[in-house]
C-alpha cells in the first residue's frame, strides 16, 4: 500500500463523510456561495495535475477515461440536484440577499453519492488495468468532485430561479 493510495483513501473518507452529512441536513441555498466549493476543488485538482504530469504523456486512453469519469460526475451531480428537496425559508425575508429557500438532498442523494464513489473506484481499477495512471491521480479526484458539485449547483440554481419567478404565496392568504 503506497503513500498515494493511503492519501487517496483518507481524502475520500473525509470527503464522503463531510458531503454525506451535508446531504442529510437542511442547508440554505446561496447559489453564489455554492459555486465557491467546486471552483476551489477544481483549482486544487488542476494544480495537482499540472505538477504530476506533463501534457505530452497524456494518451487517448487517459482522455477517454477522463471524459467517462467527467460524464459520470456531471450526471450524478445533476441527478443529486434534481432529487434535492427545496422548501421556502420563512426567516429569509429580511435582508435582500438573504436566502429564500433551503434544500436537503436526502438518503437517495446519499446513495447516489456512494454510487458515484463506487463508479469512480471501478474506473480507477479499470484504468490501472489499462495502464492509465492519470485517471486515478489525486488531482483528478478533486476535478471530478468539482464537476459533481458544479452539475448539482447548476440544477439547483435553475430550479430556484424557476421558483423565484413565481411569487411566493403568503401563509395567511390561503
Amino acid at each position: 500500500m503506497t503513500l498515494q493510495t493511503l492519501a487517496n483513501a483518507a481524502l475520500i473518507l473525509i470527503l464522503v463523510g463531510w458531503i454525506g452529512i451535508r446531504q442529510l441536513t437542511w442547508r440554505p441555498i446561496l447559489v453564489g456561495r455554492m459555486w465557491r466549493l467546486p471552483i476551489v476543488f477544481a483549482a486544487i485538482g488542476l494544480f495537482a495535475l499540472s505538477g504530476s504530469h506533463g501534457a505530452s504523456s497524456v494518451t487517448a486512453v487517459d482522455a477517454a477515461l477522463l471524459s467517462l469519469e467527467l460524464v459520470v460526475s456531471l450526471g450524478v451531480g445533476a441527478a443529486m440536484g434534481a432529487l434535492a428537496t427545496i422548501r421556502p425559508l420563512s426567516s429569509g425575508d429580511g435582508a435582500p440577499d438573504a436566502p429564500r429557500f433551503e434544500s436537503r438532498t436526502g438518503w437517495v442523494g446519499l446513495a447516489l453519492w456512494f454510487v458515484f464513489i463506487g463508479v469512480r473506484v471501478g474506473i480507477d481499477v479499470w484504468a490501472g488495468a489499462l495502464g492509465s495512471h492519470l485517471a486515478a491521480s489525486t488531482g483528478v479526484i478533486f476535478v471530478m468532485v468539482a464537476a459533481n458539485r458544479v452539475a448539482r449547483t447548476a440544477v439547483i440554481g435553475l430550479r430556484v430561479s424557476r421558483l423565484a419567478t413565481v411569487a411566493p404565496v403568503p401563509a395567511g392568504a390561503r
Partner: peptide, 23 residues
C-alpha cells in the same frame, strides 16, 4: 450530450484513436 460524450469515451477505449481525434 453526456450520453454522446460517454459513448465516445467507451468507443475510444475499444478502438485505437489518436488523442487529438478524441478531443
Amino acid at each position: 450530450g453526456l450520453t454522446a460524450a460517454a459513448c465516445l469515451a467507451v468507443a475510444a477505449l475499444v478502438f485505437p484513436i489518436p488523442l487529438l481525434g478524441l478531443v
